[in-house]
Design a protein around this nucleic acid. Sequence first.
DNA 1: TGTACATCAGTGAACGCGCGTTCACTGATGTAC
DNA 2: TGTACATCAGTGAACGCGCGTTCACTGATGTAC
Lengths: 205, 205
Amino acid sequence: MAKRGYHHGNLKQALVEASLELIRDKGPTGFTLSEAAKQAGVTPAAVYRHFDGREDLIAEVALQGYRIFGDLMDYAFQTGQPSALASFEATGRAYLAFARKYPGHYVAMFESGISTQRTPELHDAATRAMAVLETAAEALAAHIPEGKRPPPQMFSAHIWAMSHGVVELFARGSPGTKSPFPPEDLLETGIGVYLRGLGLVAPDS
Amino acid sequence: MAKRGYHHGNLKQALVEASLELIRDKGPTGFTLSEAAKQAGVTPAAVYRHFDGREDLIAEVALQGYRIFGDLMDYAFQTGQPSALASFEATGRAYLAFARKYPGHYVAMFESGISTQRTPELHDAATRAMAVLETAAEALAAHIPEGKRPPPQMFSAHIWAMSHGVVELFARGSPGTKSPFPPEDLLETGIGVYLRGLGLVAPDS
DNA sequence: TGTACATCAGTGAACGCGCGTTCACTGATGTAC
DNA sequence: TGTACATCAGTGAACGCGCGTTCACTGATGTAC
């Protein structure tokens, strides 16, 4: 793929991909700029042609992650249309699917400690991804009788929290905990019960 | 408190408390054995009189955390008795309360990457804490018509996941995200909707 | 009460290591004429 | 097509740093007699 020789050809992206693997395998703690450089076949100093340093490299990984995540959420949302309910459920599932499919990005985004406020770009990408879930929640809220309607931001937050919790506690090998159920089932049923609680699903489906 | 002089008097616990502060302030990444020693007013080498090394020190912090957590869960459970519902809700709330009140312990337990399998002691303490939530879930399950009763482990997992998600995403300053609502409210309403979905709370309470 | 001595919790110096970062440099590429 | 030269992406050596860990040691404590 990349031309090899004195000039790498596509070092920036090669570094991102090396970082992705390292972050996935060793966690954000274990990730080092030097090792990422080594894995890309290059001197640590070369990294500074493309990034401001270690943090900046992680931030780029996270940025790409948020963009992929946003695309995935968008796609899931579209998949469920025109049903507000189906769209909402699909976006919930997309969270877990993303964590599974892009573990390196996921860790860079949610476990590396980098702030989404770091750059406007990063903030935008993160906001956009979240906006999809909120849009889905708003559409769903329209189906709830006006008087008893909670703010849509609130239940998008609930679903986001449950998704995140399921991923952290049961889908990643975190504290050696054995998951009592497949995470996908757990999230599916959790969202199901929740939506029933909102009166959006028949009690006896 | 502690006698000062050549002999510290209570160095082991002093190290645990220094670690607690460091972990709280700098995260598990920023925590170093040397700095913990320094903060306890002692040479790094002195740490090895009481711990096998850096990891072992973190593990002790986590162990104490799990014990406090277990006690808190127990207490919350008792508080809600004899109502199964009240007990269950109280244990859910206890998770967030613990994270707020013991942030250093919380981080050591859930974000430091140490495994609960590390020692039998640690495993026992972690298991015991979780067992309280499961007991509460079992008692609650008895109130659900037998046919439509999901396994109690499943909804204790749901509540655990939502609690954990709320803490990680909204109660800790993690990715610079502004919480749209107070975490306590978010968790309270989230659990409320969920329990309604289980048919355990009247739809119009 | 006083002395001898074992125990043990600390010191402090040293280590090797890998880290992130800097710097002057050099080799490859691409463009102007 | 060929040469001169600017640009730029890499090298490699060096740095200072703080880390976790080890070791022989020493000072304080507490117990036996």
